[in-house]
Nucleic acid binder design. Structure first.
Lengths: 339, 339
DNA sequence: CTGAAAGCGCTTACAG
DNA sequence: CTGAAAGCGCTTACAG
């Protein structure tokens, strides 16, 4: 049996209530009593039982972190550990713990989120992704669960706290840059199209084209679904068109390098024949051949701010939803070249 | 206020005790009563409160996952998400949740682990790393906390459940392979030297040399500490020796590619001038130039088995410690060449 | 087969 | 300033 508050009370010759107050550092307890009690706690090696404490406090001091349990290449990137590091820093500061979803399918994740929030295992939730028609988000919203989203939510942005890059602007900036290099046939190899981040970047891409009066070519857009485990074929098809693109924007550095390898198989050189830009600024991207032009999306800050936002909601149920835009910066390296 | 067992009891016209038994699917409750109660639960949208349930059960149904909160390049690799995926699968199967450490410094992590185990926030712990003189491991061992380690523990291996590759054997195999290609001047660029995985691999390296009667050259060993943020200089120094190595074994694929980029800066080509082998079989390593020979260490399985092992300990305090060896396989690609 | 009661380890009005 | 009592939401012997 573990040491309880009663054991401490007995040794310190006070009531359990007093021990409890000492733990909470209640101002009205005599310094002398506090000393006595703390001595007893140390002597017995007392640690408060979270379950009991949280049961009466009606909170858990934990945040649920919900991720897509996907295995795609994009998820091999350092996004996850890095965003978690940001979340950790904020949570740790506020003495909150992190509770991770373990489910694999969407339905299971949904059930897990319902159980962890209803069962008071967590006080709030961070959604590490944002996609269309997400029933998990709908549930959180409908049930007044404090939560925040990494990414712009598909619905009711005014009612939801979220952190995001300005994906439309940064994608436009990337494409503008390529256009300024003389490219007009620019391909967009994006993530899953039901993710908001993908559709936002596609919007930015189209805006840039429109402004430059370059017609939009649907054949230049390759979605995750289109690749569907057949990445190489998809790239092959893209490049075998009558008018192949001279530049490619991809949604992730690792994907960019994968694409580059397929291009090499087709005897297409980067950047000589095709320019390419990635996203996420992977640590390796400056070391590899070619050094990759990419977008630094401030992953750490995305996590940090997402945690700050849920915490804000948890601490004040009436806190107005806020959204935070975290900088995204185009880093030019040698994978792009003017035409 | 959330729906409690009492509300369900009232609606179903039974006692709270009965509702509790229905939740536990107690065999002695009439099917008719069960039906009635379940109907009431559905109608009210009842979810059991974990805190209360765990308080009386004296368990938490959660596993603490403790990681080094390091930011080094090696931790940018997919090890973390992948090992977590393995852990998740096992934990989810047993209906356990995952609780993550959020601390940054060793001392803070220690305190966090003590608090989460003593405070019954978790029933057991998985240590995602194994290093020398680890007070966290000492604490877990001394206090009878159920735990498992990813990696061979520095002490009392017979008393501890752990998963590991046979790092000595696989490192030896890698070096044997290089020797069979005619290399004799082989460098070892390892991780932090207080990590068991590093020292084990170094042992395997030395064994292979010894068997081939190649003298051990201390200058060929570059530790994490030696690099200390000055990776490029360290590699420079390594290659500027009177007799530079013709082959390099690194502890991680990303590090390998970083090294390759420094070699290129020195006008040393891989594999023409120097052969190189990595570890961890990063998804990208088959796509990059050169495709990297590497060791697949079955990261997913490391996580899966580590979770199985803690769970075993949690479910049976007297379960004998076990250790599981997970396969490590050398994958030959184009980054090695015979001399 | 089901209920009343005690208890898990804490906190917090309410007294004094 | 401190204690006795009630209660957080559940489970589980103990009766019947």
């Amino acid at each position: 049996m573990a040491i309880t508050i009663k054991d401490v009370a007995r040794l310190a010759e006070v009531s359990p209530a007093t021990v409890s107050r000492v733990i909470a550092d209640h101002p009205k307890i005599t310094p002398k009593t506090k000393r006595k009690v703390r001595l007893a706690m140390d002597e017995l090696g007392y640690y408060p039982n979270f379950q009991a404490r949280n049961l009466v406090a009606q909170k858990s001091k934990a945040i649920g972190v919900v991720m897509e349990n996907s295995t795609t290449l994009a998820f091999q990137n350092p996004f996850f550990p890095e965003v978690l590091r940001g979340i950790s820093v904020s949570a740790h500061q506020s003495q909150y713990g992190l509770y991770l979803s373990t489910s694999a399918t969407e339905q299971e994740i949904y059930e897990e989120v319902v159980a962890m929030t209803q069962g008071k295992r967590v006080d709030g939730v961070i959604l590490l992704y944002s996609k269309m028609d997400d029933k998990i988000l709908d549930y959180l919203l409908a049930n007044g669960v404090p939560f925040s989203v990494v990414g712009r939510p598909y619905t009711r942005p005014d009612a939801i706290s979220y952190v995001d890059n300005d994906n439309i602007a940064i994608a436009k900036e990337v494409v503008d840059h390529l256009i300024s290099l003389g490219h007009r046939d620019i391909s967009f190899v994006g993530g899953a199209s039901d993710f908001i981040v993908s559709s936002d970047r596609l919007s930015g891409y189209r805006q840039a084209l429109a402004e430059a009066e370059i017609p939009f070519t649907p054949e230049y857009v390759v979605t995750q679904e289109a690749m569907e485990g057949q990445e190489q074929q998809a790239i092959c098809k893209l490049m075998k068109q009558k008018k192949p693109p001279t530049a490619i924007v991809t949604h992730d550095d690792l994907v960019a390098y994968e694409v580059i390898s397929y291009l090499e198989d087709l005897n297409i050189a980067v950047p000589a024949d095709v320019s390419i830009v990635g996203f996420n600024n992977h640590t390796l991207s400056s070391h590899l051949k070619p050094p990759l032009s990419t977008v630094d999306i401030s992953i750490f800050d995305l996590g940090l701010e997402a945690a700050n936002l849920v915490l804000e909601k948890i601490n004040d149920g009436n806190a107005a939803p806020r959204n935070i835009v975290v900088p995204a910066t185009l880093i030019e390296r040698a994978s792009c070249q003017s035409l």
